[in-house]
Design a protein around this nucleic acid. Structure first.
Lengths: 235, 235
DNA sequence: CCCACTTTGTGCACCGGTTCACAAAGGGAC
DNA sequence: GTCCCTTTGTGAACCGGTGCACAAAGTGGG
């Protein structure tokens, strides 16, 4: 049962699968807490909100960790997914920008949960530098490179104003960081080999608004209105 | 140039396109501020961080709004995209859960920018009910249905603890809301016709950790270590 | 008016991801 | 040991999305 990395482990888990592993992990943790020893792909799929065939294919990318006729051992699967995601090690993250959002992120217990540790808070505003937030001292952005090096920061969370984001990104990348979670509403330009993930509240709302409009349009009989450009434009 | 909805407007813009329209809109707004009158697909694509062929295909789903040899009229395109996304109307949103995150969202100016208005803040904790945040009075969750009805809320942002999210979702859906932006780390079960978008900080970090681990593994020569399950397990 | 140049809009081939459906594998009863 | 039942792992069809590459359309100069 060990040594089964034969077929599918040769480097290369589909991106879509990687994005779902944390979901499975969360569902499995819930099951472990409730004392379940094994779980079928069907049950786990329901808990994670996905199709069971997709779940099985996803897990098959990590190896053959199930038992036909029985299902998956909950604890064992938790361990395998955690290891695959790199959560068996401790990641030091720095949050740059201690405004409303940065502060909320620093205090947000949920994401420090497993494997992650907020190791530094930085800001440019002398007003907030020196503040204590979530048990950490806010340091000045001038210290950025030194802090990254000293604390072994490998993931940076950008919660700065849009105007500052690119500049800070350049600096953290120059300091050797290759993983950035960006909350600033800008498209960052980064060299190859640097991973950026973007969380954009405004964009999410706009997507919802689009669908909401569609729904209400359908109710009221479609868009018979305003098909014209209301302002004079000659182009 | 008007009346060109002929070819591609018959209801049905690809989801991937919808997700990029806000990006184009943001880039266009920046250009409008800088006084640009027209823009080529190439320049706009660079500003939005996408391939220019993709951008042209995306825009072609809205209609034929470009001029060959010239490009797109910036203001006109802003209007068309805004209208398509439903940003020409005013959306009232309610934020449920006024913890660190909810507070940050309420104060986050960026997402109120265009078309969206935070119309209500609600929480279950009597300690925070009555507080004034971002010019709004925090109301008690008991008022949820009444507030939604009274203020015409059509989009709800869930920033509650995980344990409360499903329950709140059920209530807002029962009250007629069909668009939810969920920050709670749970998979919400919702009926057909309800749109959910999920923002999960923890998941984003885990995806970054996965790639980060890959990168450092490669450096240090691959995972020759721990291929075994460290705890005794017999399954 | 014509020609050279620019830029859009899109047909088409390709690719990653999803889903179905089923053979293979294991468990348990007798 | 054999048979039946459950559940995995995956082959194969399918589907949405991407990007190349080019014809069509429009501009401006002479």
């Amino acid at each position: 049962m060990i040594r089964r990395l034969s077929q599918a482990r040769e480097r290369g888990i589909p991106e879509a699968t990687v994005a779902r592993l944390p979901l499975y992990l969360r569902a499995l943790n819930g099951m472990a807490e409730r004392g379940l020893a094994t779980v079928s792909s069907e049950d786990l799929a329901v808990a994670a909100g996905v199709n069971s065939a997709k779940l099985r294919k996803d897990l098959s990318h990590l190896g053959s960790y199930g038992t036909r006729g029985v299902g998956y051992d909950v604890e064992y699967l938790i361990y395998q997914i955690s290891r695959e995601l790199g959560l068996t090690q401790d990641w030091a993250i720095a949050i740059v920008g201690v405004g409303n959002l940065g502060r909320a992120l620093a205090n947000y217990g949920g994401f420090v949960s497993r494997g992650f540790r907020v190791a530094a808070l930085l800001d440019a505003d002398p007003e907030v530098v020196g503040d204590h937030i979530a048990g950490l001292n806010v340091e000045h952005i001038d210290e950025l490179e030194a802090v990254i090096r000293r604390r072994g920061v490998s993931i940076v969370v950008l919660a700065t104003p849009a105007a500052a984001a690119q500049q800070v990104a350049d600096r953290v990348i120059a300091a050797g960081v290759t993983s950035i979670l960006n909350f600033a509403p800008v498209v960052l330009a980064v060299p190859d080999g640097v991973d950026i993930r973007k969380v954009d509240l405004s964009i999410e709302l706009q997507i919802l608004a689009f669908h909401e409009q569609r729904k209400t349009d359908r109710m009221t009989g479609g868009p018979a209105m305003a098909e014209e450009w209301p302002e004079a434009v000659d182009l």
